[in-house]
Amino acid sequence: MPAKDVFGRAFPVILLTAVVAICVSLLTYVGSITLPRIEALEVQKIQGMLSGMFPDMSRYTFEDEIYAIYSDEVRIGYAFVAVGKGYGGAINILVGLEDEATIKGITVISHTETPGLGSRITEDLFTGQFVRLSVDDAALRRDGGQIDAITGATISSRAVADAVRITAMEKVKVLEDSEEGG
């Protein structure tokens, strides 16, 4: 087969490979310039949420997936991320604890719940119910807790309440264990 024919037949493959190579390089480049910014934004977001929850926060540490919140070197609380299984997927919630048994407050970090129904878990009307609530009471009323579910969004509401309660209990256990050990 003459060389020209071989090239002609291989051309589609060569072109596709070249296009993919160019696209991959472009993506790698864009990814590398945006990654630091995206990460910085994430940190900023968490920091903003933490200081919204603990207005007296002067600094925080992050260890064992638990944020310890300090105000002038005095520990004023803990925070951690709880993941609930919502109606539309995972719900990430930042939970703040005042002490081992009391919730300071919650903030929904991200979710994919139904707009207008489940998405109302982000509203103060719902999240406000968790403020100063005992960890044990973080459950829907019909499940024996203190939280009023959002009308038409029982699954989302329950996912949040249960995730908060269960994760808080786990984290408190981790904290107690580490205190005993240390």
Binding site: C23, L26, L27, V30, G31, I33, T34, R37, I38, L41
Partner: peptide, 14 residues
């Protein structure tokens, strides 16, 4: 797909 990913990354960052 490349353009969409670039847009996605840029939106995420900026």
């Amino acid at each position: 797909a490349t353009l969409v990913t670039v847009v996605n990354l840029l939106f995420h960052a900026y």
